[in-house]
Structures are given as structure tokens and as C-alpha cells.
Design a protein around this nucleic acid. Structure first.
Length: 419
RNA sequence: GGAGAGAUGGCUGAGCGGUUGAAAGCACCGGUCUUGAAAACCGGCAAAGGGGCAACUCUUUCCUGGGUUCGAAUCCCAGUCUCUCCGCCA
């Protein structure tokens, strides 16, 4: 959410910043509502002051006048509320403004590759896709999932289930012991309020799974990413600057409707309604966002280095960034069967955008209160890491060599094969 | 599912119709003392919004939304959330 006070100072600058998002927001409407709102606030406050004075005076002869004021006040308050409401509705649907580092672009084709890392494996046979490999091993079962549940789900079985668990534990261990993140095992449901805080609501309600609880109670949603829960840890808080930065990591299932991606990645487990992901979240002083973004991105790529998987780092263009982000790096891992890089992590700085929505603030050394900066990044998507390992570590006979760093997590198993 | 209790500032916790934005304590900041620190003592310390170049000033806020009243943290109604006990259950 944008701070109206700042927008007010320079409408044109705000408009320009949003144009980078290829959005044409009707700022004149905001401007008009803002002015009306403030006029009504002033009127309201004058009446309130008058009332207050009467009640303080305890002068009975003025009591009837106070009643009169009350009735005119009522109308003003009602109008002011509705205008404020309209204003907030508009503001809550406007995405974050891209940072100046972010290249202008329309969609994913305009993203910029920054650097490539690792060695692309050179197979002397046609590399199979992860689903061929997994199904041949009898350890990925999509048919079974559609029987028990529906499309876009999968059963991971046997040694691949162990591998999946190993990946999760390995990543968590690194982030906790080397990167200074606090491990959290959070709720997998989030309140509507939390979903608003991180920007999933109101605009992206269609992508979310809502869970029916008791009639009349607060709405709850399955988390599309642990970012929602981890970031909302600081919701409605005023934090002492000295405890910042806060860094949290969690490995959780994520749930997404993937509405609007019909026909996209229908085969295999690239795009599922449910997947595991290790998520990092940082809460920082607002001017530390960008340096924390570099740090966080390095935490993510470090995992790929350790797994010896080839990848590239990409900076997203203005048109491809998520709603809450000011700057995003995607990490893409090499998938031999597709002969291209695919997203395995996305690290974003959300500046104070989410903090404003959440009312997450901190008190700095000068005792001034300002909004925190929030960042989130996958470290990494577990399902996609599994895919990448299957494809990059596959052998001619369809077996999978296990990356060395994962073996301690798998009873020192070196290879997954049919026998 | 049954029966109760509660929701107050960064935290703990008083107040239960009229300068109460709210006692007290903790935490925090500044000062005195000290070689330094601690202790002790003194002082300061809520947020949001509006107006003003500024000093400053005004309004709102004691879970949320209604109501009663000239006046509500305090009374009434509705809702949400939390906790305790019993039952059921991983």
C-alpha cells in the first residue's frame, strides 16, 4: 500500500513511477477524493471540538445545541467514511512502485539475465524429463493423485519422498546454521487480514484456496507461500530498531489455484496446486532493503552451488514483477529435458509496501517511527529442486545420482535406481 | 459440543459516567553520582490523522461495530478474538 501522504507531495512523480508498471491509474480521482476527504475531516473536527467544549462546560443551557451538532456531525462522518473507503479501495489495488534499478519491460521476455553459474551437463544420450524418470522409477505418480484428489497434484513415493525430505532438511540447516535465519514451523492457514498485509488480497483472491470454517467467523486461506505468515509476524507491531534485522525461514506446503494457467506446464510437477517450498523472510530497516536483497539472493544461490546445479540469475523487468515487489531477482535452474532455465527461486524486496499494509513499524535511534522493509525469497522451491536433481543427475540407465551434500540426509544413499 | 473469564500504551497492569491519553511497575532515553559500570536519585517517554514554512496546534483512539448520554475506557446490544474447566480427538 502506498503512503498517501507521500503521493500527495508529488502526484506526477507517482504517476510516472506507475507508468513503469505499464499501468495507467486515474490519479485525478485519487487527488479529488483526497481533497474531499481532508475537507470533511476538518469540518468534522470543528464540530467535535465544539461538542467537547460544551460537555466540558457542563452548562445545561448548551446541551440542546450539542444535540443539534451531533445530527449534522453524523452526516459528515458518514460521508467522510465512505470517501475514505473509496480512497483505500483504489490504493489497495495499486502495486508497488519499481525501484530505479529495475529495467523497464512488458513481460517475462524483457527480464535481464545477470549471470550464469555452474556447468550445464553434457549427456551422451537424450536426457529424460523428470516425470519420465520419476514414473519409470515408480516414484512419481500423477495418476494416483488425480484419482484421490484431482489434476495438478502428485504422489511422491519411496526414495524420491526421502529425497524431497532431504532437500528440505538440507536447505533449512544451511539457512539456520550458516545464514542466520530463525526456523519457524508456522500455521498453514492465514487470516484475510494477513493475506491483505502481504498483498494477496484483495486483488488476487482468485488465486487463493479459501477454507470454510464456522459460519460468520473470519475468513481463512491456505497459504500460497510461507511469506504470508512469516511476514505477518510483525503485523501491527512497533519494533525496536536494535532487534532488526529479523530473519525467518520455514519449509511449508504452499497452495495455489493457478487460475489462468490452464494448459501451462500441465505435465509433470512444475506447476502444482500444492508444493513444498523453503521460504526466507527478512524484516529490515527501510534503507537496508537493497543490501538485504543481495544477501538473500546469495543465500538462495548458495544452495544451488552446494547442490552443483547450473543456474542463472535474472532481474525481473517492471512488467513481470509481483504486486508487492520493488525489485526482484529470479533464480532459474537448468532443466536438460526442456533445454532451458526454469524459475526455482524468486527473491524480492517489497520496500515498505507490505509494511504499510500491515502497519509494521520500527523505532529508530532517533526514536522516530517508520515502516519496516520486508523481503521474501524462496530458498528454494523444493519440488522444483527435486525436478532439477532428477534431470541433471540422471544416468543413462534412468537412475539418479544423489548430490553429495544430500547423502548425509539419506542414510548415505548414493543413487536412486529401480533396484 | 457444554460451562465460565477476559480483551487498556513497547510489555505487565489499575481504573468501571465528567481535565483519564489514561495510575503504578518494567523496558527505553537524558541527567546527577562513579575511574568506568551497576545501584540509587531526578527528569523524559503512546499512536494515527488534520492544519501550519515552523515553533506549535487540533481531532481521534482503552478489541470491532452499533446504542444510551450534554459527556463513555467506564452503562446497554451485537460481533470477533483469546484464555480456563468438562467432553471428544491427532
Amino acid at each position: 500500500m502506498h503512503n498517501l501522504k507521500l503521493i500527495r507531495k508529488d502526484f506526477e512523480a507517482f504517476k510516472k513511477a506507475l507508468e513503469k508498471r505499464s499501468l495507467d491509474i486515474d490519479l485525478s480521482k485519487i487527488k479529488k477524493l483526497d481533497i474531499e476527504n481532508r475537507e470533511l475531516i476538518q469540518k468534522k473536527e470543528n464540530f467535535e471540538k465544539e461538542k467537547k467544549e460544551i460537555s466540558k462546560s457542563k452548562d445545561k443551557s448548551l446541551f440542546s445545541k450539542s444535540k443539534e451538532i451531533s445530527s449534522s456531525l453524523e452526516k459528515i462522518v458518514e460521508k467522510q467514511k465512505s470517501i475514505k473507503n473509496d480512497l483505500e479501495k483504489i490504493l489497495s489495488n495499486i502495486p508497488n512502485v519499481p525501484h530505479e534499478d529495475v529495467p523497464f519491460g512488458k513481460d517475462e521476455n524483457d527480464n535481464l539475465e545477470i549471470e550464469k553459474f555452474g556447468e550445464i551437463p553434457d549427456f551422451d544420450f537424450r536426457p529424460k524429463s523428470h516425470y519420465e524418470l520419476g514414473e519409470n522409477l515408480g516414484m512419481l505418480d500423477f495418476e494416483l493423485a488425480s484419482k484421490t484428489t484431482g489434476s495438478r497434484f502428485v504422489f511422491v513415493k519411496n526414495k524420491l519422498a526421502l529425497l524431497e525430505r532431504a532437500i528440505s532438511n538440507f536447505m533449512l540447516d544451511i539457512h539456520v546454521s550458516k545464514n542466520g535465519y530463525e526456523e519457524i514451523s508456522p500455521p498453514l492457514l492465514a487470516s484475510a487480514d494477513s493475506m491483505f498485509g502481504t498483498g494477496q488480497l484483495p486483488k488476487f483472491e482468485n488465486d487463493q484456496f479459501e477454507v470454510k470454517l464456522e459460519e460468520g467467523t473470519e475468513r481463512k486461506f491456505l497459504i500460497p507461500t510461507a511469506e504470508v505468515i512469516l511476514t505477518n509476524i510483525v503485523k501491527d507491531k512497533i519494533i525496536e530498531a536494535k532487534v532488526l534485522p529479523l530473519r525467518f525461514v520455514a519449509s511449508t506446503p504452499c497452495f495455489r489455484k493457478e487460475a489462468g494457467s490452464y494448459g501451462k506446464d500441465t505435465k509433470g510437477m512444475i506447476r502444482q496446486h500444492q508444493f513444498y517450498k523453503v521460504e526466507m523472510v527478512s524484516i529490515v530497516e527501510q534503507d537496508k532493503c537493497l543490501e538485504e536483497l543481495e544477501r538473500m539472493t546469495n543465500c538462495a544461490t548458495n544452495i544451488l552451488d552446494l547442490l552443483k546445479l547450473p543456474y542463472r540469475k535474472v532481474i525481473l523487468c517492471s512488467g513481470d514483477m509481483g504486486f508487492s515487489a520493488e525489485k526482484t531477482y529470479d533464480i532459474e535452474v537448468w532443466l536438460p529435458s526442456e533445454n532451458k532455465y526454469r524459475e526455482i527461486s524468486s527473491c524480492s524486496s517489497c520496500s515498505t509496501f507490505q509494511a504499510t499494509r500491515m502497519k509494521a513499524r520500527y523505532k529508530d535511534q532517533k526514536k522516530e517511527i517508520s515502516y519496516v522493509g520486508t523481503l521474501n525469497g524462496s530458498g528454494l522451491a523444493i519440488g522444483r529442486t527435486l525436478i532439477a536433481i532428477l534431470e541433471n543427475y540422471q544416468q543413462k540407465d534412468g537412475s539418479i545420482t544423489i548430490p553429495k551434500v544430500l547423502r548425509p540426509y539419506m542414510n548415505n544413499l548414493e543413487k536412486i535406481s529401480l533396484n
